[in-house]
């Protein structure tokens, strides 16, 4: 059970949060310009890394804010947490 440092609320138990999949996948600005393959790439393809992964998390039972997390999936070490729209900190 992680202890997650919400950028808006501080340290809270993992129970209050919802994981939201891979981070930094921007919704295409002009979907109609994309081929089926390009759209499918955005829609379906997600990484599942053993190691350092960029993830979206939501403080669902708290402030309801989304934020980003860098997590090592091999040992669940949370390496960094930063707000939506911010660049990932250099590790």
């Amino acid at each position: 059970m992680f202890l997650i440092n919400c950028p808006y609320c501080g340290e809270r138990d993992q129970q209050e949060f919802k994981a939201g999949g891979e981070a930094h996948i921007e919704r295409p600005k002009q979907p109609t310009e994309l081929s089926d393959d390009e759209w499918a790439e955005y829609l379906f393809m997600r990484k599942n890394i053993k190691g350092v992964q960029f993830e979206r998390w939501n403080h669902a039972h708290g402030c309801r804010k989304w934020f980003n997390m860098i997590r090592d999936t091999s040992n669940d070490e949370i390496k960094a947490i930063y707000k939506m729209g911010e660049k990932p900190p250099s590790q």
């Binding site: 919802k18 939201g20 921007e26 919704r27 979206r56 939501n58 669902a60 309801r64 804010k65 989304w66 939506m84 729209g85």
Partner: peptide, 13 residues
């Protein structure tokens, strides 16, 4: 509500 918040916060801030 969760889905709408997601789009508002992350795609269309």
């Amino acid at each position: 509500l969760g889905k709408l918040e997601d789009y508002l916060q992350t795609e269309w801030p």
